[in-house]
């Protein structure tokens, strides 16, 4: 039974213990990834070549997609920037949210009728202000 006890024994050096589990997971991922590639590579490649697989959906709206992908980081960045100039008053959130909500609503709105635009403007002004007053001032939730 000595082979068993030698296989069974495990010594984990505390100083290196942060690597023990990640190594196991990485090994499993590599093995499984290999299996997936081997079993699925051909059908997947065929699908891509024949054009049956497309990364983007059919008739993708690239304008709205790219604008969204620019608007959200822009919003987060503004929030942080304003918050560092005017710290600890929640103004980073308030002053960045109003233009963001307005722009994103305008971006997503298909029928810019007078009624819709009025809703958008009112919403862009009121929603962030309401959140700021209630959460920041009343509940003391941290805001940038």
């Amino acid at each position: 039974m000595s082979w068993f006890s030698s296989l069974n024994t495990v010594v984990i050096d505390f100083d290196q213990s942060h690597l023990f589990f990640p190594r196991i997971i990485l090994t499993l991922i590599a093995v499984l990834g290999l299996v997936i590639v081997v079993t699925n590579a051909r059908p997947v490649l065929r699908a891509i070549r024949s054009g049956r697989y497309q990364f983007f959906v059919k008739n993708a709206d690239f304008f709205r997609l790219i604008a969204t992908l620019a608007l959200i980081p822009g919003y987060f960045w503004m929030m942080d920037f304003i918050g560092s100039v005017l710290p600890n008053m929640g103004l980073g959130f308030l002053l960045a949210s109003i233009p963001f909500v307005f722009l994103m609503s305008m971006l997503y709105c298909h029928e810019k009728t007078r009624r819709n635009v009025t809703i958008i403007v009112a919403n862009a002004l009121l929603a962030p202000t309401f959140v700021w007053v209630v959460l920041y001032h009343f509940f003391l939730v941290s805001m940038p």
Binding site: F81, I82, V85, L86, M89, L91, L95
Partner: peptide
């Protein structure tokens, strides 16, 4: 932008 914000504050 910074100046404008500070003025506002």
């Amino acid at each position: 932008a910074k100046v404008a914000l500070l003025a506002g504050s």
